[in-house]
Design a binder for these strands. Structure first.
Lengths: 191, 191, 191, 191
DNA sequence: AATGAATGAGACTTCATTCAT
DNA sequence: GATGAATGAAGTCTCATTCAT
């Protein structure tokens, strides 16, 4: 008989806020927007959060927690046969997309709507480290500036989450195909 | 000496607004911030602009005007020798970066801070059209979804403008090298 | 065992409210403060009182009731031997202090936290009447404005209740000594 | 032609706030009350003060400043002939009353409406020190607890400021007479 | 050409109070 | 006898905008 009505209301507010922050940005989102979307009154907001600032912070923390968890769960890549490198990368990209796409609003808020770029940096570092490792293994070109490539990659991921995942226009797998095609081999025809 | 002092004040305000909109977003930027940065009073703002919305619109129009002009000035690519394709693309990218980087704040505002994605779309269309053309010429792989690739490309450009150009960390030419390396041939070692 | 649990809760709330009203004043005291101190929930407050105003009114009534009772119980002063006047006054003062000091919070609320000064006036009238009587008996100087002196006396009593009784710094008897010394004979050395 | 309109508005608000804080207390006074009394709008309040808290603090500071100034201006009592002691004390009391009565609202706010009793203590200390000195000179009885007497004295002063000065019912000189009569020689007839 | 002063509208936040369980 | 959850109304504060000078 659902004795956790409060917890549910809190979640509703949280979700509503995430969507609105993602769509209109933190400043343009009013508490009244949030609670309207959650089907409650403004006072109810303050039952669960102390301020607009606070719900925002919780959002970032939430994202970071999930991010850490996702990283830790990263498949341990033992030895990949050279001929499977591409497939493996594509899969990794799909995983990232699926993770970030699972909560696209939160993702957008975390990557766009914060002062410093701490969360963004964390992700970029991970990607860059991975790429560097693959340089040492001879898989990735040594001319590539992995930091730079990591940032470029994240920008693209971020954009397509918003542009294709949030709109439902393409699936994560389709997107992973395109992204890996692009990043792994570039657009030029070889000949 | 005091020729067109008014025009100068207007420019100061415009520039201050562009920087602030770029850094903090439209909503988070207060008229008081803008005029403080411009060294004027709030009332002065309304001497030159009718509202906060208006200066924002003018900013987008300004950007669009420059954009059109830039497109029109695009070098007519007659016949490029196959062996010069890469250099040509790199140059084109450098041109784009230089154009957008000339007024990075305006660029960021135009690409991020607007309701619809009209300006963004215009650019993406151009890039996609160009790529499609290159597909027909056999230069670009046919598997590439040019619309998608255009968007990815713009996302990267946009990010590096903010991340490297606005900070002065890298020059447009350096960036063009990295971007073309990445997009043209991908990160994988060929073998 | 659970006899009149309700009555107990009501008392707890009443006492908590009295202390808080005394310390922070009516307006600055929140229902949430009161019930927190009483170990109950806000809804419980409304089980026993209809509003914040109401508990406050009850407090004043309570005080007034006790006050009436105290007055009525006032020792009938028949004939006091001139040489015992001082002792008698000191005792009266001690009685007043003990009465008001028994519930210092209530006292403070009653004397400070009300719109009109009805309760205060009642007490002042009593003291003034008493003094006037003593003037007729030749005990008190005729130059003394008894109304004024009554007010001065009550102000002092009120202050020391808060300053010394509530803090436990001095006992009512010690205070009565000082007060009577002060009021009866003044600070100047006679010679 | 009065180019200091702003400064005037600030003063109007300050004065209105002082009166209201004195009459209804800090918490019960609304910004809307204050500005209504000052003939301005709520927004104007924030042109001159950052918060309700701040204007209150400024009020205390203001009072303290005046207090220090008053103390410093205290007449240097060289040698007072024994037979002039009373007159001298009466004059001192009148001075204090005039000083505090000049701005009775501020006085009330400073003495009643603050967390700690810092300002109150400062005054009490001064009075007590003075009295102690007079004890050494054989003017004041040694049985008197000067700290206690100082507090009693201030309570009375405070009360009569509110009760008689603010209402205009008695003048400072009349009050000084009564107060000195009371405190110097007490109410009892000597015989 | 510019400013000091003010404001209306609306945002955020608090709090006494209610109600279903 | 008591509570968890919610709310309406009101208060504090902010900000784009206006206007007289």
């Amino acid at each position: 008989m659902a004795r956790n009505k409060g917890e549910e209301s809190k979640k509703k507010i949280f979700q509503a806020a995430a969507e609105l922050f993602a769509h209109k940005g933190f400043h343009a989102t009013k508490i009244s927007d949030i609670v309207a979307k959650a089907g409650l009154t403004q006072a109810a907001f303050y039952l669960y959060f102390n301020s607009k600032e606070e719900i925002f912070e919780q959002m970032l923390e939430d994202f970071e927690k999930q991010l850490i968890h996702f990283s830790d769960a990263g498949k341990k890549v033992a030895d990949i046969q050279p001929e499977h490198v591409k497939d493996h990368v594509r899969e990794t990209i799909a995983d990232i997309l699926k993770f970030l796409g699972k909560n696209p609003h939160l993702t957008k808020v975390a990557l766009r709507e914060n002062k410093d770029d701490r969360l963004r940096s964390i992700i970029v570092e991970k990607i860059a480290a991975n790429m560097s490792n693959n340089q040492r293994l001879g898989i990735v070109k040594t001319e590539i500036d992995t930091q730079f490539a990591g940032e470029a990659f994240l920008s693209v991921i971020e954009h397509i989450i918003e542009r294709y995942v949030m709109t439902g226009e393409k699936t994560e797998n389709e997107l992973a195909d395109q992204v890996s095609l692009l990043f792994l081999e570039g657009i030029l025809n070889k000949n």
